[in-house]
Design a protein around this nucleic acid. Structure first.
Lengths: 338, 338
DNA sequence: CTGTTAGCGCATTCAG
DNA sequence: CTGAATGCGCTAACAG
């Protein structure tokens, strides 16, 4: 079955130690010998056993990725970027999805055991870690890096969420809106994840800086999802009395939900209601949604690259990095008509 | 650093072999001994080394998952389902994303080496495999199962795509439509994946069965994506002369693209144009899109369960399975007005 | 029911 | 520059 390093050694007339060196591109191997080994390995279709080399070297050449979901835009994109740089460096990607709430409400139970002795580093995607969890993870001693949001006590790669939310809010204010509502992301079981709170705080700050009133009935949770956006928006649209002329949504998914619900009711966008989100989801350009764009794919690449550098011996390569965002104006925002 | 099985053995006053048996729940261990071992392992914070047990047993307890993307609805959902059953059985999920075309146009180069000696089974997600690729994979001797579409020479878990496409087409026909266009999925670098062709063939068959004309200028490729749907739809809407009264789209993403483009032009749906897709994407219900629903999450679970059973010794557990679909009528389809 | 004995396939000392 | 020896941590026969 398995072609082992011994078979290659025999075929190339050298020792297994030399085969090992030659195949990994280490020095101290003459060009001629290396060529011979490579040829032999090629001919025999030799593939080193990950288990064996992992056991012998203590390294797995595998990076773990902990995600709350994979089936949402931000996460899928980030995973894609991460996988790409890992794969290009010969590393494997071990996926741990918490699968938040799908189906049988699986509990969030990742443990040290999931992680230890099977990965060389861990990337944590847009996830709040409790102090205990973080402590467990840090205790393993492997490089740890968050992507998509800050995790206390751990470096991260993400945008400045306060600034992004502020840019969105101020865009609406600059347009002349004064009655502005807000759809907040996040859910209860994700309390420790700061991103939604940062955005909310920045929205509130921008509003008060402009001397505008925060109306609690116009600030609803939408869970970062389309359907959450639909629900929250419907609730606001149903309110008697004065309505907001604009809605800032903490994610494009929610903004699109709000847009669908508005269209269903025959409301005109942006004439009757301006809508802005954050992300630049695939659907946003086709839908004409104004948004604050970010690039999770690139964020993933940057994070994976850092981790690889660290594993490659560049101590201090894993560090925090603020990534850019950009306001993209499309058709869903305009000055208020009333 | 690492607490090894020997430490546990010493602590529990037994041999390493007994520790191994006890921890894995094998028979031939007295309850008292087992309890002692468990306690010792717990106390020491012992975590077995995957590499070591893999090397000794020849099993990795890891399943590979080969996907073209992860950042699209069907794939993300399927991955979620797969991950869940794998994780619940203590298996790891090793992700291989081909990352089709993102950024630097990475070539599709997964090799035997990616797969061999590091996974116990491989799941292939909605991917056409060339004969050589399939041969390589089968040569490894591990269980192989496709999800989301047929792969010649390999069992698969997926819906009856012909029947699904037929249901969609006949829904439009039953409504009275006679001028029906079609947006096809798939791209050139995915020629070997049969799903788009199956749907196209079924559409054509249903049309001719009803005595309706197939108009080539109304049958355009949309790449399964929103933006592809926008482009294809725009091209059809721009056509001079008679327009179709309905569009069947090979995926909801494309249908939603067609919907966005229609709305941008002020076309009324379903009054001026009926739209139907396949999938039941997250956005479809909020958008009011009629569709033929399928459940990739469940498909993933079924496939993963089969593979696990096979690995568990149930020979023949991996087999083809046709999963259900269901027509879900929403607001985007209605009888033609003209 | 339990301990002993061998490797699993490779990376690493160290000599040469 | 190369080879022989050693052990990574665990599982899998065997005995007992």
């Amino acid at each position: 079955m398995g072609v082992s390093i011994e078979d290659v050694a025999e075929q190339a007339q050298v020792s297994t130690a030399t085969v090992s060196r030659a195949l990994r591109g280490l020095p101290r191997v003459s060009p001629a010998t290396r060529a011979r080994v490579l040829a032999a390995a090629q001919e025999l279709g030799y593939v080193p056993s990950r288990s064996a080399s992992g056991l012998a070297s203590g390294l797995t050449r595998t990076v773990g990725l902990l995600v709350p979901f994979v089936d949402r835009w931000y996460f899928g994109r980030a995973v894609e970027g991460i996988d790409q740089v890992l794969r290009d460096s010969g590393y494997n990607l071990l996926l741990f999805s918490l699968g938040g709430g799908h189906g049988h409400g699986r509990k969030r139970s990742f443990t040290e055991a999931m992680v230890r002795k099977q990965i060389d580093a861990l990337l944590v995607l847009s996830l709040g870690l409790s102090p205990e969890e973080l402590c467990q993870l840090q205790h393993t001693g492997i490089p740890l890096l968050s992507v998509g949001g800050p995790v206390e006590g751990c470096s991260g790669v993400f945008i400045d969420d306060r600034a992004a939310a502020r840019a969105a809010t101020e865009h609406l204010i600059a347009l002349g809106h004064r009655r502005i509502g807000y759809l907040q992301g996040g859910s209860d079981d994700e309390q420790s994840f700061e991103v939604p709170n940062l955005r909310t705080a920045a929205f509130a700050a921008a509003m008060s800086r402009a001397g505008l009133e925060l109306r609690p009935e116009w600030m609803l949770p939408g869970d970062f999802t389309v359907s959450g956006g639909v629900r929250a928006a419907a609730q606001i649209y149903d309110l008697p009395g004065e309505s907001p002329t604009a809605l800032f949504c903490g994610s494009d998914e929610m903004a699109l939900g709000a847009m669908f619900e508005a269209q269903r009711r025959g409301m005109r966008i942006p004439e009757e209601l301006s809508l802005i989100g954050i992300d630049d989801h695939d659907f946003s350009a086709p839908a004409g949604l104004t948004t604050v764009a970010q690039n999770p794919w690139e964020q993933g690449r940057v994070a994976a690259t850092m981790v690889l550098a660290e594993l490659g011996g560049v101590s201090g390569a894993v560090q925090g990095r603020i990534m850019p965002f950009e306001l993209v104006e499309r058709g869903s925002t305009a000055p208020p008509q009333r």
